[in-house]
Design a protein around this nucleic acid. Structure first.
Lengths: 155, 155
DNA sequence: TCGAGACTCATACTTTTGTGTGATTTTTGA
DNA sequence: TCAAAAATCACACAAAAGTATGAGTCTCGA
């Protein structure tokens, strides 16, 4: 715990130490160059410059990094992001088979192709599609596709 | 031009000025408190602390911000992000009118409705649609819708 | 100005789609 | 278990979609 604290305040401790160190250095230097004119100003200037540097160094180390949030546009194909709108689907009251037919219609299949895919007769597919058009309140397969996509009940 | 330069180096000039100012201040203070013991060390410490502050301030102002790039995924629905795939559209060789018909077909409109919308005859719409089906290599309007959406040539 | 492509339209025909009605079987939930 | 819903299918008809062919007009670039 106290070690943690030490670690956390490392910079501050280091700063204090360097400050103290420099003062000792200055005192020692004072003895040697006290005779010099304007020695004080020179020292003061040196300290100012040095500690400006220390300050800069401190700031750069301690400054919280500015978090730059880059909004990355992620284009995701409709298939991967598709989540079926269960509510709307429920509301329509489409049966499992009707939804299946609707999905196949949306892929561009003809009634005959759908019949073959589902192993039922063409008439059955027609019945299903006609019924689902009624439930969806549309008049054609193309309208059904458009509406179903807008309602997010198919991909 | 020289004004620009002045502006650009404002911080540096300010720093120099404050440094000079402080030295004058110190010289003046020296005359008054020279009698104090350890005055020099006190001054030196004060200078160190002040210029550490100056350094920090400078660093924070001038330093390039440490940027932590956080990629935030922005999900965008298909409708709002729609950009027509010009290349594919070009490749298909659809005429302006054919594309118009295709777009209206995709909204679920019947040929008759499209004819009325475009102020042309039903036969004209049929001709356009038949031609565009040929160019798109599909056999029905539903297939055309599916393919066009996948090719991103319609919304 | 000449030809190619675009746009228009018609006619005739085929195919597909959609509706209406009725019926049988299966599934399912109360 | 019993009724309702779902799924299946047929037939007949109507409506829409799609194809093939031919043709007239218009625009635009070579």
């Amino acid at each position: 715990m106290s070690f943690e604290l030490l670690k956390k305040n490392k910079q501050i401790i280091l700063y204090g130490a360097s400050l103290a160190g420099l003062l000792f250095l200055l005192q020692w230097l004072e003895l040697r160059f006290i005779i010099m004119d304007h020695a004080f100003e020179i020292y003061a200037g040196a300290i100012a410059i040095i500690f400006t540097g220390v300050g800069i160094w401190l700031a750069l180390r301690l400054a919280k990094p500015k978090t730059l949030i880059v909004e990355k546009e992620v284009y995701i194909s409709a298939e991967t992001t598709f989540v079926q709108n269960e509510n709307e689907l429920e509301r329509l009251g489409l049966s499992k088979r009707e939804l299946e037919v609707l999905q196949l219609i949306s892929t561009g299949m003809s009634n005959q192709e759908i019949a073959e895919r589902l192993f039922v007769s063409l008439n059955t597919v027609k019945t299903h599609s006609s019924n689902l058009f009624g439930k969806m309140d549309v008049k054609s397969r193309t309208q059904a596709i458009d509406k179903a996509k807008k309602m997010q009940i198919i991909a």
